[in-house]
Design a protein around this nucleic acid. Structure first.
Lengths: 183, 183
DNA sequence: CCTACCGATCGGTAGG
DNA sequence: CCTACCGATCGGTAGG
């Protein structure tokens, strides 16, 4: 049970988060999960194939951590932002942003998975904001919110300073609240 | 002249930007500048030593591109933001953020250089804002501004969409203008 | 799930 | 600035 699929993917995520895609090795992953490297290849055909799995696990965990569609849209929006921020502050870096920066045209499946992940995040957030704003506004607000939160990880990486992250969350919630109704 | 120091550093910067620190190889760099790999080591003792050079070159170029301390603080602030944003939109990714995410404790000189770079950027921006805000507010505004601009590269990487970047710049300028005087 | 191994490439050096 | 080379590690495979 210790070497379950999800356990391997979760450990791969930690390696990708800290070392990036290029800097994470299959040998390190094997050591972390306590098996030999060739055994990894019975579960995952390539290193690249771990990337979609890592992103899918992250999406699944985020969905599970959030309360289902209870409360108003603003409460749900704030809950999502705070959950994301808390995770990023705790782990210092964002795996997904690291992968977005690291994977290129030489690993097209990984690059596609990263693109899909962020578009899905954007669309989910835009759907919430769609309760109070027109589609175009909601989409722009979702993109800006994700950009601000990801950008705030700059200071969790550089100075272990979570203050910019929490300011970003507070301001994003306030913006959504105050703009409601007046375009 | 083609293989000047700055030329090598500039090519190293492109490799770091696209592939990250771990994903950039000295062989690739040598090929790009048209010399053999061992010749690189007559100019730079290690791969790691390229990181401080890349950041220093970037600082130098940014200083040179900006008009010297003419105009009021708001005009200078806006000029800095627009120069940074234009560069990031053109190149899709930020080398400095990629390095901040990629370099770790195994390359301490590189990690220190990245930390120093961003602190210096923050302090320079805070100094401008210091003309109209108290030191603590100016510092927080500078951190938030850098975080927003770096964060907006998420969408230049994912979707080649510069819109969030320009929205961030416009809003940051507007925030600085409107907050002026009233804390 | 293992041992044993592959060719390729890594950062870096010797020696001129 | 080069040719030639080093040990280590990379992603991945053969075969059981």
């Amino acid at each position: 049970m210790k070497t379950s699929l999800d356990n391997i993917i979760s450990e791969a995520r930690e390696l990708f988060r800290v070392h990036g895609y290029a800097g994470a090795s299959m040998q390190d992953l094997a050591t972390r999960v306590g098996i030999k490297k060739p055994s990894l290849y019975t579960r995952f055909p390539t290193k690249e194939s771990l990337v979609p799995e890592v992103l899918a696990l992250t999406s699944r965990e985020m969905d599970a951590a959030l309360p289902d569609a209870s409360g108003d849209w603003l409460a749900r929006y704030e809950a999502v932002l705070r959950a994301m921020a808390a995770d990023l502050v705790a782990r210092q870096r964002c795996v997904c942003l690291h992968l977005a920066y690291d994977v290129g045209d030489d690993t097209p499946e990984a690059a596609d998975a990263v693109r899909s992940y962020f578009r899905q995040q954007r669309d989910a957030m835009a759907a919430m904001l769609g309760a109070a704003f027109d589609a175009q506004t909601a989409r722009a607000m979702a993109m800006d919110a994700l950009a601000r939160i990801e950008g705030a990880t700059l200071w969790t990486v550089i100075d272990s300073d979570p203050a910019p992250m929490w300011r970003a969350v507070d301001e994003l919630v306030e913006i959504a609240r105050s703009r409601k109704g007046n375009p």
